[in-house]
Amino acid sequence: MESAASRLEDVESRIAKASKIARRARDEVTLIAVSKTHDAQAIQPLIDAGQRVFGENRVQETEAKWPALRERHPDIELHMIGSLQSNKAEDAARKFDFIHSLDRPSLLKALAKAYDKTGRRVPCFVQVDVGEEEQKGGCPIADLPVLLAQARELDVPVVGLMCIPPLEIEPAPFFALLDKLARDYGLEGRSMGMSGDYETAVQLGATHVRVGTALFGSRD
């Protein structure tokens, strides 16, 4: 069995190589270890190997396993990368350091209310529907300027854009599109790339890559 440390070292090496090809510095890319469906016992070896940034898909799952881990490792950074229900906005505001799935006005309003209540203004990425796939969620490209303007009005900090390209299609054009949109709107962050395509994403401007299987191994 390959160890967590060796898997992490391999992914880090690949990110560094892709960064070099793109003439970027390695520290321009944040590796998010996607720990969804994995328990604390599976996560701990990656923490021991030095990983400090993790991503979860569900608020409830985060509540079940992360309090004890964060008590032992207070420097852990947690990213909400899954679809977020408006009624979970306050929980997300309390538990996460970044939210990657802001995609609609109703969620934006719920987050603004949660931020005012908790006193935490968690930075967000707007998820963009680059592949025009309604089932994946994401703000339609045509609606992006309005959503960004509303976020400014409600004092919800937007630091970048996020996308999930369509499956079984070359992802590079979708990454390039997200990079262009981020530049057009003056946003620094580009959350794009997963286990199968993060190297391509890095070469095309990703600032955050969301890697699960390559770090944790295949799910049962």
Rank of each mutant, 00 (worst) to 15 (best):
A25G: 04
R210V: 02
L154F: 03
A42H: 02
E63C: 13
S191V: 05
L181K: 09
G212L: 04
A182P: 11
A214W: 04
G131M: 07
K180P: 14
S101N: 09
K20L: 10
M192P: 12
K17T: 13
E63P: 13
Q135G: 04
Q203K: 11
R121F: 00
V11K: 06
E63Q: 15
D48S: 12
F54Q: 07
L178S: 01
Q60E: 15
E63V: 14
R24T: 00
I164F: 06
R70Y: 11
C163R: 06
G189F: 00
E28W: 05
S106W: 02
A16H: 07
I43L: 04
K113Q: 03
M192K: 06
P105G: 02
G212W: 02
A110D: 10
I99S: 02
V122R: 08
D129H: 03
Q41T: 11
V158A: 04
C124D: 10
G189E: 03
A149Q: 13
P157A: 01
D27I: 02
G196D: 14
P105I: 03
A110I: 12
G193V: 01
I43Y: 04
A110E: 13
V53T: 11
A214M: 00
K95I: 15
K20Y: 01
T62W: 14
A64R: 15
A149R: 13
S13T: 11
L46D: 05
F175Q: 09
I169R: 15
D143A: 13
P105Q: 05
D27S: 09
D129F: 07
R152T: 12
G82F: 06
A182L: 10
I32Q: 05
G193T: 03
M192F: 05
P171W: 07
G82C: 04
R120T: 12
T207P: 10
S86W: 01
S3H: 10
I15Y: 05
S83K: 14
T37M: 09
Q41I: 04
D39P: 01
M192Y: 08
P105W: 05
A42I: 00
A18Y: 08
I15D: 02
R104W: 03
P173R: 04
E188A: 13
L31W: 01
Y185S: 07
Q44G: 01
R152D: 08
L167V: 10
H38D: 08
S101D: 06
A64S: 12
A176Y: 00
K88R: 13
E168Y: 00
I43C: 03
K88T: 07
K95L: 15
P171Q: 09
R219P: 10
Q60P: 14
D220N: 11
V158D: 06
N87I: 12
S35T: 08
F54L: 05
R23E: 07
S6A: 14
Q51A: 14
K109D: 13
R94Y: 15
S106V: 08
C163N: 00
T37L: 09
E132V: 11
K20D: 12
V29P: 04
L204W: 05
V159F: 00
E199M: 10
Q51C: 13
L108D: 02
K180F: 14
Q60H: 15
P123I: 01
G50S: 14
K117S: 15
K20E: 15
M80H: 08
S191Q: 08
F98N: 14
D129C: 08
A64D: 13
E28D: 11
R58S: 13
P171M: 07
G119E: 06
S19F: 06
G193W: 02
L84S: 07
D197N: 11
P166T: 03
E90W: 14
L215E: 12
I21S: 08
R24D: 00
